[in-house]
Simulated assay, not measured.
Amino acid sequence: MLKTDFDDARTEPYGPPEQHRELQSTNPVALLDWAGRGRGVWAITKYDDVRAVLSDFRFSSDRSKPDHPAHAAYSPGTIQGQIIAMDPPRHSLIRGRVMGEFTVKKVAALRPRIEQIVDEAIDAMLAGPHEGDLVEALALPLPSMVIGELLGVPYEDHHFFQTNSAIYTDQRATPEERTAATAAIREYIATLVDARLDTPGVDILSRQLAAGATRDEAIGLGFLLLIAGHETTSNMISLAVMTLLDQPELLQQLRDDPAILPKAVEELLRYFTIAEVGGLRLATEDLDVHGVTIPAGSTVWALTNTANRDPEVFPEPDRIDFSRGARNHVAFGFGPHQCLGQNVARLELEVVLQRIIDRLPNLRLTVPVSQLRFKEHGNFGLYELPLAW
Protein backbone atom coordinates (compact mmCIF):
# COMPACT_ATOMS: atom_id res chain seq x y z
CA MET A 1 0.00 0.00 0.00
CA LEU A 2 1.28 3.47 -0.83
CA LYS A 3 1.86 5.68 2.17
CA THR A 4 -0.13 8.42 0.46
CA ASP A 5 -3.56 9.09 1.95
CA PHE A 6 -6.41 8.94 -0.52
CA ASP A 7 -8.15 12.31 -0.81
CA ASP A 8 -11.50 12.64 -2.54
CA ALA A 9 -11.87 16.41 -1.97
CA ARG A 10 -11.96 18.69 -4.99
CA THR A 11 -10.25 21.97 -4.22
CA GLU A 12 -9.74 23.29 -7.76
CA PRO A 13 -12.81 24.63 -9.59
CA TYR A 14 -11.67 23.46 -13.01
CA GLY A 15 -10.00 20.13 -12.39
CA PRO A 16 -9.83 16.82 -10.51
CA PRO A 17 -7.58 16.56 -7.45
CA GLU A 18 -3.95 16.77 -8.48
CA GLN A 19 -3.25 13.53 -6.65
CA HIS A 20 -5.66 11.69 -8.94
CA ARG A 21 -4.05 13.16 -12.06
CA GLU A 22 -0.60 12.11 -10.88
CA LEU A 23 -1.81 8.58 -10.24
CA GLN A 24 -3.17 8.36 -13.77
CA SER A 25 0.26 8.95 -15.25
CA THR A 26 2.40 7.14 -12.67
CA ASN A 27 0.30 4.49 -10.93
CA PRO A 28 -3.07 4.00 -12.66
CA VAL A 29 -4.14 1.13 -10.38
CA ALA A 30 -2.97 2.28 -6.96
CA LEU A 31 -3.63 0.94 -3.48
CA LEU A 32 -3.80 3.92 -1.14
CA ASP A 33 -4.44 4.46 2.55
CA TRP A 34 -7.95 5.85 2.95
CA ALA A 35 -7.48 7.08 6.48
CA GLY A 36 -10.89 8.73 6.64
CA ARG A 37 -12.55 5.34 6.20
CA GLY A 38 -9.99 3.28 8.12
CA ARG A 39 -9.17 1.10 5.13
CA GLY A 40 -7.23 0.89 1.92
CA VAL A 41 -8.75 1.82 -1.42
CA TRP A 42 -7.77 0.86 -4.95
CA ALA A 43 -7.91 4.04 -7.05
CA ILE A 44 -8.57 3.33 -10.75
CA THR A 45 -7.82 6.36 -12.91
CA LYS A 46 -7.47 5.39 -16.60
CA TYR A 47 -10.46 5.60 -18.94
CA ASP A 48 -10.39 2.00 -20.20
CA ASP A 49 -9.81 0.61 -16.71
CA VAL A 50 -12.65 2.66 -15.21
CA ARG A 51 -15.04 1.40 -17.88
CA ALA A 52 -13.88 -2.17 -17.26
CA VAL A 53 -14.58 -1.90 -13.53
CA LEU A 54 -17.95 -0.22 -13.96
CA SER A 55 -19.14 -2.82 -16.47
CA ASP A 56 -18.18 -5.86 -14.37
CA PHE A 57 -20.69 -6.96 -11.71
CA ARG A 58 -17.90 -8.79 -9.90
CA PHE A 59 -17.05 -5.31 -8.71
CA SER A 60 -20.17 -5.20 -6.59
CA SER A 61 -22.52 -2.29 -5.90
CA ASP A 62 -24.51 -4.25 -3.32
CA ARG A 63 -24.41 -2.13 -0.19
CA SER A 64 -25.96 -4.89 1.91
CA LYS A 65 -22.54 -6.59 1.88
CA PRO A 66 -20.81 -5.69 5.18
CA ASP A 67 -17.48 -5.02 3.44
CA HIS A 68 -18.95 -2.66 0.83
CA PRO A 69 -17.54 0.86 1.32
CA ALA A 70 -21.07 2.33 1.40
CA HIS A 71 -22.48 -0.30 3.76
CA ALA A 72 -22.75 2.24 6.59
CA ALA A 73 -25.54 3.94 4.65
CA TYR A 74 -27.39 0.67 4.04
CA SER A 75 -30.74 0.02 5.68
CA PRO A 76 -32.77 -3.07 4.70
CA GLY A 77 -36.00 -1.16 5.17
CA THR A 78 -35.11 1.66 2.81
CA ILE A 79 -32.94 0.16 0.08
CA GLN A 80 -35.75 -1.50 -1.87
CA GLY A 81 -35.93 -0.10 -5.38
CA GLN A 82 -32.65 1.82 -5.15
CA ILE A 83 -30.94 0.13 -8.06
CA ILE A 84 -27.70 2.04 -7.54
CA ALA A 85 -27.12 -0.11 -4.45
CA MET A 86 -27.77 -3.63 -5.78
CA ASP A 87 -26.46 -6.29 -8.15
CA PRO A 88 -28.17 -8.78 -10.48
CA PRO A 89 -30.54 -10.45 -10.63
CA ARG A 90 -32.53 -7.94 -8.58
CA HIS A 91 -30.85 -4.96 -10.24
CA SER A 92 -31.65 -6.29 -13.71
CA LEU A 93 -35.31 -6.82 -12.86
CA ILE A 94 -35.97 -3.39 -11.35
CA ARG A 95 -33.85 -1.41 -13.82
CA GLY A 96 -35.41 -3.23 -16.75
CA ARG A 97 -38.85 -2.30 -15.47
CA VAL A 98 -38.11 1.43 -15.29
CA MET A 99 -35.80 1.98 -18.28
CA GLY A 100 -38.70 2.68 -20.62
CA GLU A 101 -39.52 5.83 -18.66
CA PHE A 102 -36.33 7.53 -19.88
CA THR A 103 -36.13 6.79 -23.59
CA VAL A 104 -35.02 9.59 -25.91
CA LYS A 105 -38.56 9.88 -27.31
CA LYS A 106 -40.22 10.12 -23.89
CA VAL A 107 -37.68 12.64 -22.62
CA ALA A 108 -38.01 14.79 -25.76
CA ALA A 109 -41.71 15.15 -24.97
CA LEU A 110 -40.72 16.96 -21.76
CA ARG A 111 -39.08 19.86 -23.62
CA PRO A 112 -42.13 22.22 -23.69
CA ARG A 113 -42.68 21.84 -19.95
CA ILE A 114 -38.98 22.29 -19.16
CA GLU A 115 -38.91 25.42 -21.33
CA GLN A 116 -41.94 26.74 -19.47
CA ILE A 117 -40.36 26.15 -16.05
CA VAL A 118 -37.13 27.86 -17.11
CA ASP A 119 -38.98 30.81 -18.66
CA GLU A 120 -41.07 31.30 -15.53
CA ALA A 121 -37.93 31.31 -13.39
CA ILE A 122 -36.24 33.85 -15.67
CA ASP A 123 -39.44 35.96 -15.70
CA ALA A 124 -39.26 36.09 -11.91
CA MET A 125 -35.58 37.05 -12.04
CA LEU A 126 -36.30 39.91 -14.46
CA ALA A 127 -39.31 41.11 -12.48
CA GLY A 128 -37.38 41.51 -9.22
CA PRO A 129 -33.97 42.85 -8.21
CA HIS A 130 -31.48 42.25 -11.01
CA GLU A 131 -29.03 40.51 -8.72
CA GLY A 132 -29.17 37.24 -6.82
CA ASP A 133 -28.15 33.61 -6.51
CA LEU A 134 -28.68 31.47 -9.61
CA VAL A 135 -28.62 28.26 -7.57
CA GLU A 136 -31.66 29.36 -5.60
CA ALA A 137 -33.39 31.15 -8.49
CA LEU A 138 -33.03 28.51 -11.19
CA ALA A 139 -30.47 25.72 -10.79
CA LEU A 140 -32.19 24.03 -7.83
CA PRO A 141 -35.88 24.59 -8.68
CA LEU A 142 -35.74 23.30 -12.26
CA PRO A 143 -34.63 19.69 -11.69
CA SER A 144 -36.74 19.48 -8.55
CA MET A 145 -39.84 20.61 -10.45
CA VAL A 146 -39.18 18.22 -13.33
CA ILE A 147 -38.61 15.10 -11.24
CA GLY A 148 -41.46 16.12 -8.95
CA GLU A 149 -43.84 16.22 -11.87
CA LEU A 150 -42.58 12.90 -13.19
CA LEU A 151 -43.33 11.38 -9.80
CA GLY A 152 -46.73 13.06 -9.63
CA VAL A 153 -46.03 15.56 -6.85
CA PRO A 154 -48.92 18.05 -6.64
CA TYR A 155 -47.90 21.63 -7.40
CA GLU A 156 -48.82 22.83 -3.92
CA ASP A 157 -46.32 20.36 -2.39
CA HIS A 158 -43.31 21.42 -4.45
CA HIS A 159 -42.04 23.85 -1.81
CA PHE A 160 -41.92 21.07 0.78
CA PHE A 161 -40.30 18.78 -1.75
CA GLN A 162 -37.61 21.30 -2.75
CA THR A 163 -36.87 22.43 0.80
CA ASN A 164 -36.22 18.93 2.14
CA SER A 165 -34.31 17.88 -0.99
CA ALA A 166 -32.01 20.88 -0.57
CA ILE A 167 -31.33 19.96 3.08
CA TYR A 168 -30.65 16.32 2.19
CA THR A 169 -28.05 17.26 -0.42
CA ASP A 170 -26.46 20.14 1.54
CA GLN A 171 -23.01 19.12 2.80
CA ARG A 172 -23.25 21.88 5.40
CA ALA A 173 -26.36 20.40 7.03
CA THR A 174 -25.93 18.57 10.31
CA PRO A 175 -26.42 14.78 10.41
CA GLU A 176 -29.62 15.37 12.37
CA GLU A 177 -30.95 17.78 9.74
CA ARG A 178 -30.14 15.38 6.92
CA THR A 179 -31.72 12.46 8.77
CA ALA A 180 -34.89 14.47 9.35
CA ALA A 181 -35.03 15.57 5.72
CA THR A 182 -34.49 11.99 4.52
CA ALA A 183 -37.32 10.75 6.71
CA ALA A 184 -39.62 13.55 5.55
CA ILE A 185 -38.94 12.86 1.87
CA ARG A 186 -39.35 9.11 2.24
CA GLU A 187 -42.56 9.49 4.21
CA TYR A 188 -43.91 11.87 1.59
CA ILE A 189 -43.06 9.51 -1.28
CA ALA A 190 -44.71 6.71 0.69
CA THR A 191 -47.92 8.75 0.80
CA LEU A 192 -47.68 9.24 -2.98
CA VAL A 193 -47.23 5.50 -3.52
CA ASP A 194 -50.11 4.62 -1.19
CA ALA A 195 -52.35 7.05 -3.04
CA ARG A 196 -51.37 5.43 -6.36
CA LEU A 197 -52.18 2.01 -4.98
CA ASP A 198 -55.75 3.21 -4.43
CA THR A 199 -56.04 5.50 -7.44
CA PRO A 200 -53.41 5.04 -10.19
CA GLY A 201 -52.33 8.16 -12.06
CA VAL A 202 -50.22 8.89 -15.14
CA ASP A 203 -46.89 9.20 -13.33
CA ILE A 204 -43.83 6.95 -13.02
CA LEU A 205 -44.86 5.58 -9.63
CA SER A 206 -48.25 4.46 -10.93
CA ARG A 207 -46.73 2.80 -13.97
CA GLN A 208 -44.09 1.01 -11.90
CA LEU A 209 -46.73 -0.36 -9.55
CA ALA A 210 -48.77 -1.52 -12.52
CA ALA A 211 -45.66 -3.22 -13.94
CA GLY A 212 -45.19 -5.27 -10.77
CA ALA A 213 -43.16 -3.12 -8.38
CA THR A 214 -43.90 -3.66 -4.71
CA ARG A 215 -44.82 -0.74 -2.47
CA ASP A 216 -41.33 -0.64 -0.94
CA GLU A 217 -39.66 -0.86 -4.36
CA ALA A 218 -41.72 2.05 -5.65
CA ILE A 219 -40.85 4.13 -2.58
CA GLY A 220 -37.12 3.37 -2.90
CA LEU A 221 -37.12 4.07 -6.63
CA GLY A 222 -38.97 7.36 -6.13
CA PHE A 223 -36.47 8.44 -3.50
CA LEU A 224 -33.52 7.51 -5.74
CA LEU A 225 -34.92 9.33 -8.77
CA LEU A 226 -35.50 12.45 -6.71
CA ILE A 227 -32.04 12.60 -5.19
CA ALA A 228 -30.10 11.40 -8.23
CA GLY A 229 -31.92 13.78 -10.57
CA HIS A 230 -31.93 16.78 -8.27
CA GLU A 231 -28.53 17.76 -6.95
CA THR A 232 -26.45 16.51 -9.87
CA THR A 233 -28.31 18.51 -12.50
CA SER A 234 -28.48 21.54 -10.26
CA ASN A 235 -24.72 21.43 -9.80
CA MET A 236 -24.10 21.09 -13.53
CA ILE A 237 -26.33 24.08 -14.33
CA SER A 238 -24.49 26.36 -11.92
CA LEU A 239 -21.02 25.12 -12.96
CA ALA A 240 -21.85 25.48 -16.66
CA VAL A 241 -23.11 29.05 -16.24
CA MET A 242 -20.12 29.93 -14.07
CA THR A 243 -17.77 28.64 -16.78
CA LEU A 244 -19.44 30.52 -19.62
CA LEU A 245 -19.32 33.77 -17.66
CA ASP A 246 -15.75 33.23 -16.47
CA GLN A 247 -14.57 32.29 -19.96
CA PRO A 248 -16.58 34.61 -22.20
CA GLU A 249 -15.01 33.27 -25.39
CA LEU A 250 -16.96 30.05 -24.77
CA LEU A 251 -20.18 31.99 -24.30
CA GLN A 252 -19.52 33.85 -27.54
CA GLN A 253 -19.13 30.56 -29.40
CA LEU A 254 -22.63 29.58 -28.35
CA ARG A 255 -24.02 32.98 -29.31
CA ASP A 256 -22.37 32.76 -32.71
CA ASP A 257 -23.46 29.18 -33.40
CA PRO A 258 -26.40 27.93 -31.28
CA ALA A 259 -26.33 24.62 -33.17
CA ILE A 260 -23.25 23.51 -31.21
CA LEU A 261 -25.11 23.66 -27.89
CA PRO A 262 -25.68 19.86 -27.63
CA LYS A 263 -21.95 19.30 -28.14
CA ALA A 264 -21.20 22.00 -25.59
CA VAL A 265 -23.38 20.22 -23.05
CA GLU A 266 -21.47 16.96 -23.60
CA GLU A 267 -18.13 18.72 -23.26
CA LEU A 268 -19.14 20.45 -20.03
CA LEU A 269 -20.41 17.16 -18.63
CA ARG A 270 -17.06 15.53 -19.48
CA TYR A 271 -15.06 18.42 -18.13
CA PHE A 272 -16.68 18.56 -14.69
CA THR A 273 -17.77 14.92 -14.15
CA ILE A 274 -19.45 15.95 -10.94
CA ALA A 275 -20.77 12.60 -9.65
CA GLU A 276 -17.99 10.46 -8.22
CA VAL A 277 -19.56 8.30 -5.53
CA GLY A 278 -21.19 5.99 -8.08
CA GLY A 279 -17.76 4.56 -8.79
CA LEU A 280 -17.38 2.87 -5.39
CA ARG A 281 -17.26 -0.91 -5.63
CA LEU A 282 -16.36 -4.05 -3.67
CA ALA A 283 -14.24 -6.72 -5.39
CA THR A 284 -16.02 -10.03 -4.82
CA GLU A 285 -13.12 -12.15 -6.10
CA ASP A 286 -9.52 -11.66 -7.15
CA LEU A 287 -9.74 -9.51 -10.28
CA ASP A 288 -7.19 -8.19 -12.76
CA VAL A 289 -7.16 -4.50 -13.75
CA HIS A 290 -4.40 -3.14 -15.99
CA GLY A 291 -2.19 -6.12 -15.15
CA VAL A 292 -2.65 -5.67 -11.39
CA THR A 293 -4.47 -8.22 -9.23
CA ILE A 294 -7.02 -6.65 -6.89
CA PRO A 295 -7.78 -9.13 -4.08
CA ALA A 296 -11.30 -10.19 -3.16
CA GLY A 297 -12.80 -8.00 -0.45
CA SER A 298 -10.99 -4.86 -1.62
CA THR A 299 -12.58 -1.42 -1.82
CA VAL A 300 -12.31 -0.06 -5.36
CA TRP A 301 -13.02 3.47 -6.58
CA ALA A 302 -13.32 3.92 -10.33
CA LEU A 303 -12.54 7.62 -10.70
CA THR A 304 -14.62 8.92 -13.58
CA ASN A 305 -13.30 12.46 -13.20
CA THR A 306 -9.79 11.37 -14.17
CA ALA A 307 -11.09 8.92 -16.78
CA ASN A 308 -12.67 11.89 -18.52
CA ARG A 309 -9.31 13.69 -18.47
CA ASP A 310 -7.37 10.76 -19.93
CA PRO A 311 -5.22 12.28 -22.70
CA GLU A 312 -5.16 8.97 -24.58
CA VAL A 313 -8.91 9.32 -25.14
CA PHE A 314 -9.48 13.08 -24.97
CA PRO A 315 -6.59 15.08 -26.50
CA GLU A 316 -5.81 18.23 -24.52
CA PRO A 317 -8.25 17.05 -21.84
CA ASP A 318 -7.94 20.17 -19.68
CA ARG A 319 -9.17 22.40 -22.49
CA ILE A 320 -12.90 22.93 -23.03
CA ASP A 321 -13.48 22.23 -26.69
CA PHE A 322 -17.10 22.45 -27.82
CA SER A 323 -16.25 20.86 -31.17
CA ARG A 324 -15.18 17.68 -29.38
CA GLY A 325 -18.74 16.41 -28.89
CA ALA A 326 -17.43 13.73 -26.58
CA ARG A 327 -20.50 11.54 -26.08
CA ASN A 328 -18.13 8.72 -25.08
CA HIS A 329 -17.42 10.38 -21.72
CA VAL A 330 -18.26 8.60 -18.46
CA ALA A 331 -19.82 11.53 -16.60
CA PHE A 332 -22.98 9.42 -16.26
CA GLY A 333 -21.04 6.31 -15.33
CA PHE A 334 -20.78 3.29 -17.58
CA GLY A 335 -22.22 -0.17 -17.88
CA PRO A 336 -25.26 -1.56 -16.04
CA HIS A 337 -25.38 1.27 -13.49
CA GLN A 338 -25.13 4.09 -16.02
CA CYS A 339 -27.40 6.97 -15.01
CA LEU A 340 -31.04 6.31 -15.92
CA GLY A 341 -31.95 9.98 -16.14
CA GLN A 342 -29.04 11.15 -18.28
CA ASN A 343 -31.27 12.22 -21.18
CA VAL A 344 -33.37 14.34 -18.82
CA ALA A 345 -30.23 16.01 -17.47
CA ARG A 346 -28.96 16.72 -20.98
CA LEU A 347 -32.26 18.28 -21.99
CA GLU A 348 -32.47 20.44 -18.86
CA LEU A 349 -28.93 21.72 -19.39
CA GLU A 350 -29.56 22.47 -23.04
CA VAL A 351 -32.77 24.37 -22.35
CA VAL A 352 -31.31 26.35 -19.45
CA LEU A 353 -28.21 27.44 -21.35
CA GLN A 354 -30.17 28.38 -24.46
CA ARG A 355 -32.72 30.43 -22.51
CA ILE A 356 -30.01 32.18 -20.50
CA ILE A 357 -28.12 33.09 -23.68
CA ASP A 358 -31.30 34.37 -25.33
CA ARG A 359 -32.92 36.17 -22.41
CA LEU A 360 -30.13 37.31 -20.08
CA PRO A 361 -27.57 39.01 -22.32
CA ASN A 362 -26.15 41.09 -19.45
CA LEU A 363 -25.64 38.19 -17.05
CA ARG A 364 -22.35 38.47 -15.16
CA LEU A 365 -20.56 37.17 -12.09
CA THR A 366 -20.56 39.52 -9.13
CA VAL A 367 -17.57 37.83 -7.46
CA PRO A 368 -14.52 36.16 -9.01
CA VAL A 369 -14.49 32.37 -9.29
CA SER A 370 -11.73 32.25 -6.67
CA GLN A 371 -14.23 33.54 -4.08
CA LEU A 372 -17.01 31.07 -4.86
CA ARG A 373 -17.74 28.26 -2.40
CA PHE A 374 -17.51 24.77 -3.89
CA LYS A 375 -18.80 21.44 -2.63
CA GLU A 376 -15.62 19.48 -2.10
CA HIS A 377 -17.01 16.00 -1.44
CA GLY A 378 -19.65 13.80 -3.05
CA ASN A 379 -21.20 15.59 -5.99
CA PHE A 380 -19.05 18.54 -7.03
CA GLY A 381 -20.87 21.85 -7.38
CA LEU A 382 -21.50 25.33 -6.02
CA TYR A 383 -23.29 26.35 -2.89
CA GLU A 384 -24.21 29.69 -4.44
CA LEU A 385 -23.61 31.46 -7.74
CA PRO A 386 -24.03 35.22 -7.17
CA LEU A 387 -24.88 37.00 -10.41
CA ALA A 388 -26.25 40.24 -11.77
CA TRP A 389 -28.38 40.50 -14.90
Rank of each mutant, 00 (worst) to 15 (best):
K3C: 01
T4C: 03
F6K: 07
E12G: 08
Y14M: 07
E18Q: 15
R21Y: 01
R21E: 10
E22K: 06
P28Q: 09
L32C: 11
L32W: 08
D33Y: 12
T45D: 10
T45E: 15
Y47K: 10
A52R: 12
F59T: 04
D62R: 14
D67M: 08
D67R: 14
H68M: 01
A70F: 12
I79F: 10
Q82N: 07
D87N: 07
P88H: 04
S92C: 06
F102C: 09
F102M: 12
K105W: 09
R111W: 04
I114R: 00
E115N: 07
Q116I: 08
G132Q: 09
D133Y: 09
A139I: 01
G148N: 07
L150R: 10
G152S: 09
Y155R: 07
D157N: 12
T163V: 10
E176H: 10
T179G: 14
T179W: 13
A180M: 15
A181C: 06
A181F: 03
A183L: 15
Y188D: 14
T199G: 02
T199F: 05
V202S: 15
V202Q: 14
A213E: 03
R215V: 03
R215Q: 06
D216R: 00
G220L: 11
F223G: 00
L224Q: 15
I227Y: 02
G229Y: 09
T233C: 10
S234D: 04
A240T: 15
T243R: 02
L245R: 06
D246H: 01
E249Y: 12
L251E: 10
L251Q: 11
R255D: 00
D256P: 11
D257V: 00
P258D: 11
I260M: 15
V265A: 10
E267H: 12
A275I: 08
A275G: 11
E276L: 03
G278M: 03
R281V: 02
V289L: 15
H290I: 00
V292N: 09
T299H: 13
A302D: 15
L303W: 07
N305Q: 13
F314P: 03
P317A: 12
S323I: 00
A331C: 04
N343G: 01
N343E: 06
A345E: 12
E348L: 02
V351S: 02
L353N: 10
R364P: 01
S370Q: 11
R373E: 02
R373S: 08
K375M: 02
F380M: 08
G381V: 10
G381W: 00
L382M: 06
Y383V: 01
E384S: 12
W389L: 05
W389F: 14
